[in-house]
Nucleic acid binder design. Structure first.
Lengths: 210, 210
DNA sequence: TGTACATCAGTGAACGCGCGTTCACTGATGTAC
DNA sequence: TGTACATCAGTGAACGCGCGTTCACTGATGTAC
């Protein structure tokens, strides 16, 4: 971390991979893109390497090369920062599923691919995935009993309903959707918790059950 | 908490619901049963009311009416205390499943009851359930890739295998077992995380899928 | 073009908190004589 | 039965830690004149 900051000083003008530019003058860091984005990137990269509970406001700030208090210019509190990370995670998962579905050519194969992508995303982003599932939206964001994740899953639910025969009753569609989600979610969590092996063959086996 | 301690003083000799007896003399607490059991009970009751991360060593000691350092007479460290709680949880879950299976009269109905009991246990003991799934055994307790939970699930896996036709290959049995576990585990976790409603009809719907 | 000034994204010091763990200790208990 | 003593389950004070958050501040920037 110190090395990174010193590096910034020596290059003097440095462009982040994202939409922010850090400029050091007189030993001070100015973020001319938005520090907000830099903080989110820092948080995501932290989630790649640590447990979710290691993502402290101070550590995120440290990784962004900024004092802890600077965070409060961009987020009202820690919870809001975490929530922003969740939103990014949900977007990434949705995008990955959309891509997998398209690559498989839609239909049943596309649907299977969606489920497998869900598990692979969880394995590739354990801490982020856990955070996404655990985090409740700030009050007022969603209808009661609706979460950031479950609203993102609405599309998934519709996919599942499509797999059923046209005449199927709504309740049956709803239950089928929840069973499919439960299966992939359960497999993902059991793998993350080390209860079952992280086995590609197991992930592939999903298609035989949904 | 203070009230409880004062209560102890007034009754002077007080029998816990468990296998320990607290005696107060000269303002001091002596546990003549084992404080170990009392600490575990305190931890379990704490898990009933709080998130798992609120179960601190100090709080458990407080609930048992004892100084934090007293814990170290009975557990090498906090991790060992948590692990003891997990063991109790695993036992409780296994016992509940055994009872449900017996009550349903074995066979397919018994197997379904096992899965539904899994979900109900999670809903009834959210923090304990999470802790059980997350906690890794101290090194040396189990074979690599084997956890306290997954070893307790060995019985479940055998149950599942029994439901398959006799000629089924081992690999198919293994996958069927994991799918069944994944389904109930996923439903339990999604309900705990508030992603799907805690709906008894959903729990009942499990029997149509395993 | 030069100057005065408001803005506002950063700063470091400080706060109180609860945590896990260590330490030297104390005093009730049970036992040996 | 009375006494000396070892045992060992408890005690409270103290440690260092990292946390989220507050506070008054500073100084580079862009703008108005």
């Amino acid at each position: 971390l110190l090395a990174k900051r010193l590096g910034d000083v020596y290059t003097d003008n440095m462009t982040n991979n994202d939409n922010s530019v850090n400029i050091k003058k007189a030993g001070r860091t100015y973020h001319h893109g938005d520090l907000r984005s830099a903080l989110i990137e820092a948080g995501l990269s932290l989630l790649q390497n640590c447990d979710a509970d290691a993502v402290s406001l101070r550590e995120v700030a440290r990784m962004a090369g900024v004092s802890a208090t600077a965070v409060y210019r961009h987020f009202p509190d820690k919870q809001a920062l975490l929530y922003a990370l969740c939103q990014r995670g949900v977007d990434q998962l949705a995008e990955a599923q959309r891509a997998a579905k398209a690559a498989a050519g839609g239909g049943t194969a596309g649907f299977d691919a969606t489920g497998q992508t869900y598990v692979r995303f969880a394995l590739a982003n354990p801490a982020l995935f856990r955070l996404m599932m655990t985090t409740q939206a700030p009050t007022g964001h969603f209808a009661p009993d609706e979460t950031l994740v479950s609203s993102a899953m609405r599309e998934l639910r519709q996919n599942i309903a499509e797999q059923l025969p046209p005449g199927a009753p709504d309740d049956q569609r709803r239950i089928a959707a929840i069973h499919a989600w439960s299966l992939v979610h359960g497999m993902a969590m059991l793998m993350l918790d080390g209860q079952i092996p992280r086995d590609e063959a197991l992930i592939a086996s999903i298609s035989r059950s949904v």
